[in-house]
């Protein structure tokens, strides 16, 4: 009854694949998304680098990408993926759509975190004669850091869900395992095991995020 066709090695490989996909796309996604989030905040009307045209381009672009379901994005950008990683299947190929999916999401989350910063602090910064860069670096980001960590936590958990779908392009990972072995071959044990693994992942990341945010905030 507890027999399964999946070996422990396969499980380990799947976990490694998932971690790799989440890690890589989170890293690159944050590298793109965080500056975008900052740009959204500083270029908006009343921001320290107010720019009507930049804001009115960035804002809808992010909205458009964000409105595409991941599974559609995955298929839609196959030519682009091929251009970048010279293949459209496998773990590396899955990372490209994952990044395109997560970067605008991170951008939005970062924007929200930064908007939460007390406007009085930005006023104090302006009164001190801080340059826009200094406002961002010495005031905006430090004040938002706790909230930013929680935003990245949310983004990471969103990514874990998306990696499961990335299995459709042979991305591998825990989600892929569950679909290929569990769902298509009726291997209940695999399904249960992957669910447990995913729950542990999500729980672990959330509590890690919470702890980090609390530690850093200290207030």
């Amino acid at each position: 009854m507890f027999s399964t066709t999946v070996t422990a090695d396969q499980f380990m490989q799947a976990i490694t694949d998932t971690l790799y996909m989440v890690g890589m796309s989170l890293f690159v996604g944050a590298l793109i998304g965080i500056p975008f989030g900052i740009l959204l905040v500083v270029t908006r009307p009343g921001g320290v680098l107010e720019s009507k045209w930049l804001y009115s381009i960035l804002n809808p672009v992010i909205n458009i990408i964000r409105s595409l379901p991941f599974i559609i994005l995955l298929v839609a950008i196959v030519p682009f993926t091929r251009l970048i990683v010279h293949t459209s299947i496998g773990t590396s190929a899955a990372i490209v759509p994952l990044i395109i999916y997560i970067a605008p999401y991170i951008g939005r989350l970062v924007e929200n975190s930064l908007l939460e910063v007390n406007p009085g602090i930005l006023e104090a910064a302006e009164a001190m004669g801080a340059t826009p860069f200094q406002v961002i670096w010495y005031f905006l980001l430090p004040e938002a850091i706790g909230s930013l960590i929680l935003s990245l936590t949310t983004a990471t958990i969103g990514l874990i869900g998306a990696t499961a779908m990335a299995g459709t392009v042979g991305g591998g990972g825990v989600g892929d395992l569950a679909i290929v072995y569990g769902h298509q071959r009726f291997d209940t044990v695999v399904v249960v095991a992957t669910v447990i693994i995913l729950v542990i992942f999500v729980q672990g990341i959330q509590s890690l995020g919470n702890t980090l945010a609390r530690k850093i905030r200290r207030y």
Partner: peptide
């Protein structure tokens, strides 16, 4: 020049406006 001039003018606020993270 305005930024430089502002360094010569200190300001304090009703709600202090301190950085809570620092």
């Amino acid at each position: 020049e305005l930024r430089a001039a502002k360094k010569n003018i200190g300001m304090i606020f009703q709600h202090f406006n301190l950085l809570e993270s620092k």
